[in-house]
Design a binder for these strands. Sequence first.
DNA 1: CTTGAGATTGCAAACCAATTGTAGTAACCG
DNA 2: CGGTTACTACAATTGGTTTGCAATCTCAAG
Lengths: 159, 159
Amino acid sequence: MNPLMSKEEINRDDDRLLEEAVAMLKKSGHRVTQPRIAILKALISEKGPIKIEDIHRRVSDRNCDLATVYRCIGAFEKIGIVRRCFFPDGSSLFEFIVGGDHHHHIICTSCRKVETIDVCVVDGLERLVHNRGYRNVSHMLEFFGVCENCAQSEDGKTD
Amino acid sequence: MNPLMSKEEINRDDDRLLEEAVAMLKKSGHRVTQPRIAILKALISEKGPIKIEDIHRRVSDRNCDLATVYRCIGAFEKIGIVRRCFFPDGSSLFEFIVGGDHHHHIICTSCRKVETIDVCVVDGLERLVHNRGYRNVSHMLEFFGVCENCAQSEDGKTD
DNA sequence: CTTGAGATTGCAAACCAATTGTAGTAACCG
DNA sequence: CGGTTACTACAATTGGTTTGCAATCTCAAG
Ligand SMILES: [Mn+2]
Ligand SMILES: [Mn+2]
Ligand SMILES: [Zn+2]
Ligand SMILES: [Zn+2]
């Protein structure tokens, strides 16, 4: 995200992303419903991986059921609107990926803060996998570690 | 795994790995119990990621409870005897990593077959993450795709 | 070898994220 | 506008994982 953008420009950008996602919904034969719009907005404004439960909390004032969030995210994943990420403990997060560049994350195992890594050296390897006969190749890469803040507060703990 | 090794040599190698894992157990202050030995043997003979339930199935004749498998694997993970891998659907597998080189996998999203990739281009990036102030840095990388067999049988399906 | 402290296990119950069934609602096509 | 039917809310259910606890096993000290 460009740090030079004003808030209006950011919101305009968010609107564009929403429109793009809505277009993908329609194109894949899905209906554009109020819960789906609300969930998409939550995903877009988060600008990073987010838990299903947190999505639900954000849209709950509009009374969108948790089961609906699960079903929508499932649909979004199939369509390619969101992508699944993992915590080292195995729990899943979902990230809005429409109109964004391929990237990966550093997740602090202590405070769960998420940082972005814009480099991806894995694309070359995907070709290698393709050459082994695999089709529909994708990959997932996450880095884990203890961030500077947490390392300081933890002092001499090995953890 | 060296394909030139005889079965006896492979078994000897498995025994060596078991001893090494047992040593790690002792060193970390854990007791060497019969269920733990059985689970370690199952992990070693599998030579790849395996589901908790499958581990339990393999050792069930010795009457090791499923809860015990969960607890042991949890301990093994902390000690560094096993490492967690992921299926694209979010389910977890565990792999014996003692005495083995760092590597990654290609998982067929159709038949769930697991292949090994011995190359890891990510090690360099870990240093980069470390330079960002992170400590205790690790990473996880998985490739997903449809293997040659499955692609053939699926014919023209887009999946 | 024997013994005791306490780590570990088996078993059953609890837990909780995720899924499912269904009747009602809302999207959207003509 | 209606009519079709995809979608949603709600509640019940599932299935993988965790937990509490009494019985058991490990292992080090004697
Ligand atoms: Mn991201
Ligand atoms: Mn492996
Ligand atoms: Zn942190
Ligand atoms: Zn396959």
